[in-house]
Design a protein around this nucleic acid. Structure first.
Lengths: 132, 132
DNA sequence: TTGACTGTCATATGACACCATGACAGTTTT
DNA sequence: AAAACTGTCATGGTGTCATATGACAGTCAA
């Protein structure tokens, strides 16, 4: 798995780690049972403090994506959202609306936005397949 | 225009104001030449400090969405992005990818995501039309 | 011109998020 | 048992966000 942190993006480092793990799970790079780099190892690799990584892993455990075992390591859990579909869709709606606003701000047309989503979905799908 | 600030969302107030202005412009509630509430008036209405609103308006002016004239007020500018289409699309791509990851994390299927985007785009379009 | 409105800037202060240092606790291997 | 690994917690520094306040500068109407 490839990690990359942008220290000047304004996005907290621990959040970038969280998002990259989620992204890796979404694209099939990480699968159920996989072990993540140890807190110290990843911290050293990214030149970041151990606690920053520990916090990221902690958030992911809280969200149900990871299982952290003291002494053993951190492992990807089987994803099983306890939320009803209506709730999940509602949460996505906010993100979709933000995207639409951003598209309009950048003066990208609705059709181009639809096309871009299709394109990226296909890209993700291809990556998932190639990981099998 | 309706304003609503969530003080417990963790999102900085000034950013919420920025996003709501962008959203209002995107949905046609605000149009070129429209005057926004004065810094002091909006600050009082939202029970927020003047500087917080001033910062939001300042960011929006820096982004090219507003023109702030000392003594007169703050006005919506004609949107004209100086960026090439390729650059704009590239910026959107990051947001689209985040959305895809979030959809996967929430276990929403690709088709449902496409449908949701269509639904929200239609909703925005209807709102734009009704503002004319 | 005067007064009331606009936006802007500088400063100080408090709360909180982020991140780093060091110590601690559990597990696995030797 | 000892060593080397794992994750975790308490503490303190630093920066951002928001507040409060005061002062200044430009615009417009009475």
């Amino acid at each position: 798995m490839v990690w990359s942190i942008d220290y000047h993006s304004g996005v907290p480092v621990y959040l970038q780690v969280v998002q990259q793990v989620q992204s890796a799970v979404a694209s099939g790079v990480l699968r159920e049972g996989d072990q993540l780099p140890s807190v110290r190892a990843l911290a050293e690799q990214l030149r970041v403090n151990r606690n920053t990584i520990a916090r990221a892993y902690g958030e992911l455990e809280h969200a149900g994506a990871l299982e952290n075992r003291q002494g053993s390591g951190c492992f990807v859990r089987a994803s099983a959202t306890p939320l009803r579909k209506a709730v999940r869709t509602e949460r996505l709606t906010g993100a979709v609306d933000s995207l639409i606003v951003q598209a309009h701000t950048l003066q990208v047309s609705d059709d181009d936005l639809r096309g871009l989503l299709d394109e990226r979905l296909t890209e993700f799908d291809a990556r998932r397949k190639s990981e099998e």
